[in-house]
Nucleic acid binder design. Structure first.
Lengths: 229, 229
DNA sequence: AATGTACCAATCATCCTACAACTTTTCGGA
DNA sequence: TCCGAAAAGTTGTAGGATGATTGGTACATT
């Protein structure tokens, strides 16, 4: 019925101001914030108050401070750090499973919504895959493969989905590669997602789902093998 | 290649200690932390240092402080708050889309992994749905329906998936209900997921996917209608 | 030219004390 | 017993002091 009176603490006010300055692009990733002394004057708060605000954002992953050097903007979104912390506490295979679920959805949406630029990016990754396959460059191949999947998720045109997917992929990079190369009979040609790409290009949702499901089935099999070892 | 030297600041050390005390259950949700003076002595740090640590956890959503009263544990996971913040910045329909993707995956996994307790919980929710349908209690029905979906996701036995799903569902409760009741010809009986429940009970992955896909299609249609208004 | 040393200035890290603001408890009086 | 004032307890904010780390400069050494 009654809304609580807005008694935002000074620290919270400073926090949201800094957050806003970062989101709005006034401070970009990599930029150095003014030193504490100046910020104190700008926000008109004491050093303690300012430091508590900055510390909150450092823990959230938006800022990074180095003694003697200064404070820089590290990210524009706190989701990555939080997700990463959760992933560390959680089972690796559970995380991979969720990631595959996002990928499955992305394939369908990408088939519906992809545009020219999306197709170009995907094609570029596929060609990188093929080049790496020709030179038997396994790690190069896997990197290009991950890029392809990212491009596909981007083509789904859902920023929330993309956000989650990328934040779940980057910390898992090495684990994903480990799963992929666990296959004793690793076959480059079979792993190139040419069919999937063409299904998305032709906007065939049905085929896109089919190919992704095949890929997921393969991936799951490899995960299972590792788990049993 | 090279690991960065690990020089954890005092504040960070206190933060992780408190985090650990919460995770380990030493302090449960709702508990009040000892006053700052005591914590200062316990951790052997100054008030400023301690306060910066606490402030970081307050911003992350694990703690809540009230001037004059004390500090209480609010949550054991910071993911919820971070996800919520991201959702506020993001498009509602994008979030709903991701939520449906998780649900689709959950249905398949639930069909494979559900146990007796899972089935009991799902059945309970379904019966609550039916009771609400009989009395034409629309809001009661929708609440029970959401409970059913949550139970299904729980039955997938993937804590990461469940975590994400619940944290994406709770803040969307009202939006989800709004979408559901937007249907002019809302039909209780059609919305009761009896078929889906039995498919999961019979461990028929194929049927489970089918029913969930039907449900998702319906839901999407309603969302589309709202968007076009 | 590359490396090592000494020094300086800027900046963050930590600690301390003091007081304000708010909440909870205590206690005396009606 | 009930009520309200006082007291005690707790977090919020301010300001000052000192220590530690970093980055840069100048200069000598190899």
């Amino acid at each position: 019925m009654f809304k609580k009176a807005n008694r935002m603490s000074l620290v919270e006010q400073v926090v949201s101001q800094i957050e806003h300055l970062i989101e709005s692009g006034h401070w970009s990733v990599g930029d150095r914030l003014p030193p504490e002394m100046e910020l104190m004057k700008e926000f008109d708060v004491s050093r303690n108050t300012l430091r508590e605000a900055i510390r909150a954002l450092v823990h959230a992953g938006l800022l990074e401070t180095k003694q003697g050097s200064g404070t820089i903007v590290k990210s524009t979104s706190a989701l990555g750090v939080a997700l990463h912390r959760q992933m560390e506490k959680s089972n690796l295979y559970e995380t991979l499973e969720v990631r595959l679920a996002l990928e499955r959805e992305a394939a369908q949406l990408a088939a519906l919504r992809r545009n020219k630029e999306d197709l170009q990016e995907m094609q570029k990754s596929i060609e990188a895959c093929k080049r790496a396959a020709n030179t038997k460059d396994l790690y190069g191949f896997l990197s290009a493969d991950i890029e392809f999947h990212k491009a596909m998720v981007k083509a789904a045109h859902n920023s929330m989905l993309q956000n989650l997917y990328e934040h779940m992929t980057d910390p898992l990079r090495s684990s994903i590669k480990r799963v992929m190369i666990s296959d004793k009979h690793f076959d480059y040609t079979r792993e190139i997602h040419d069919d999937l790409f063409h299904a998305i290009k032709q906007q065939s949702v049905k085929d896109a789902i089919g190919y992704v499901n095949d890929y997921i089935k393969e991936f799951r099999k490899k995960v299972k093998q590792i788990q049993e070892e």
